[in-house]
Design a protein around this nucleic acid. Structure first.
Length: 430
RNA sequence: GCAGAGAUGGCGGAGUGGUCGAACGCGCACGACUCGAAAUCGUGUUACGGGCAACUGUACGGGGGUUCGAAUCCCUCUCUCUGCGCCA
């Protein structure tokens, strides 16, 4: 949600931004917001003066009653009562206008950064830096499910029976590798000065609607029956929700947090062939990082955050690149975003393993997350989030990149302490 | 889960229908004193909104109700504490 004042003061800038995102159908919203805002303020002025009258009358009545002037008090009561009908009517109209205003404001996208490449959709995203040049494998890389099976690392058949499509049992060394990656990523972030956090895995509906749009919620969130609770789709939900409505002391910023959680997603929509297996599933685990900082620091943190993910993958010897999200592919709340993509030697292309975003104050405004600035004013913080690592997906990259000709899988040194010193995972003997 | 008590500003804590946006204390900011500091004294200090301004509205956990008027009364939800029960 952007600042209403910005729409008032500079509607052209807001419209320009909408055009940059190829959402021209939203252009009329800007003028609608301005008109609604004007109406709302007019109503408020009328309502305010009526309420001021009511307050004054109430005070008078109180005084009259104390003096024992009952009849005069009764007369004033009648006047006040008549007033109240008008106030009620104004309140009703105001709440209608406010609801529409809020709806419009929610769909007007955040102002994007100047350096976001213009483009219609994900096909026009721009490759950024490439890290760790990938090497040609001297043999064909099988589909990740086949690798997992050859290592005795997965049981999808049982998972389908117990839970349905989109779930898995990881077993043996693969399950251990999964945990190892998470533990390593956790320690990696702690070493970077982040505070480790395990958040609630369920959140209330008011938090859900604070952190995402209704459409996202409908497509992603699992609801607990009979409770006002939803399973989180990412720990970002509960991590950011944690600060809802808070005014943080300036000295507590930046908040640099890394959180672990399972993530639950409905993943409504078609599943292509490349999504067979563990690429897209209903339940996975993720190490996340979030930052709450002062506005002037968010550009700095954005660069830092995505580079941490790169550094982590490079330390596990997995080639990655940065893919810069173009204007049309950028979610409405985002100022700037990029994906970290890992190299798939099987597909001979990169695929997404993480996503880093700077939401500036759009999310904070929606959730009321502020800090007391040095000038004494309460300002909205900037929020950023980034995937450290989401193991099932990173596991695909891991297996494809570290598979050896003999069918074993190489474990890079940084993970060995978490794997009982093992240097490789061996295929099952038939 | 059951029973009782409770939720008030950054914190503690008064207030039980009108003079309450809220006593008092702590904290914080500024000033005085001091070579400087501590102590002391003084002043200020909730948030959000409308208005050029004077000024004004709203909010005492959330929502609803009673009333001319609600922090105060009623209903409901959430949370906290105490006791009992249950259980990793």
């Amino acid at each position: 949600m952007i600042d209403l004042n910005l729409i008032r003061d500079n509607p052209e800038l807001v419209k320009e931004n909408i055009k940059k995102k190829f959402q021209d159908k939203k252009l009329p919203l800007v003028d609608e917001v301005i008109a609604l805002d004007k109406q709302k303020r007019e109503l408020q002025q009328e309502g305010d003066s009526l309420r001021a009258q009511r307050n004054a009358l109430a005070k008078q009545i109180g005084a009259l009653m104390r003096e024992g002037k009952k009849e005069e008090a009764e007369v004033a009561k009648v006047t006040s009562k008549a007033n109240n009908d008008r106030i009620a009517a104004i309140e009703e109209e105001t709440s209608k206008i406010e609801a529409q205003l809020k709806k419009d404001m929610m769909s007007i996208p955040n102002i994007i950064a100047d350096d976001v490449p213009l483009g219609k959709d994900d096909s026009q995203n721009v490759e950024g830096k490439v890290f760790l040049k990938h090497e040609e494998k001297p043999f064909d890389i099988p589909y990740h499910l086949d690798i997992l099976e050859s290592l005795n690392g997965i049981d999808l058949d049982s998972a389908r029976r117990t839970s349905g499509n989109g779930f898995y049992y990881l077993t043996g060394d693969i399950a251990r590798l999964h945990s190892a990656v998470l533990s390593y990523a956790r320690d990696f972030m702690i070493d970077k000065g982040f505070t480790y956090c395990i958040p609630p895995y369920m959140i209330r509906s008011d938090v859900v609607s604070g952190v995402m749009s209704f459409e996202e919620m409908d497509g992603m969130m699992y609801k607990i029956e009979g409770e006002d609770l939803y399973l989180i789709g990412t720990s970002e939900h509960s991590m950011i929700g944690r600060f809802m409505g808070e005014i943080l002391p300036e000295s507590s910023l930046p908040q640099t947090l890394t959180s672990y959680s399972p993530c639950f997603r409905k993943e409504k929509g078609a599943h292509g062939i490349e999504e067979r297996g563990i690429y897209r599933i209903h339940q996975f685990e993720k190490q996340e990082m979030i930052v709450l900082c002062k506005p002037e620091e968010s550009d700095y943190w954005y660069e830092k955050l995505w580079n941490y993910t790169v550094e982590l993958f490079v330390s596990m010897e997995i080639p990655v690149r940065q893919l810069i999200c173009c204007s049309g592919d950028l979610a409405d709340l985002k100022y700037k975003s990029c994906d970290i993509e890992a190299w798939s030697p099987r597909q001979k292309k990169y695929f997404e393993v993480g996503s880093c975003s700077n939401l500036t104050d759009a999310q904070a405004r929606r959730l009321g997350i502020r800090y007391k600035a040095a000038n004494g004013k309460n300002e909205f913080v900037h929020t950023l989030n980034n995937t450290v690592v989401a193991p099932p997906r990173m596991l695909i990259a891991f297996l494809e990149n570290h598979l050896q000709a003999d069918g074993s899988v190489y474990i890079p040194p940084v993970l060995r302490p978490y794997m009982g010193g093992k240097e490789k995972i061996l295929p099952k003997t038939k």
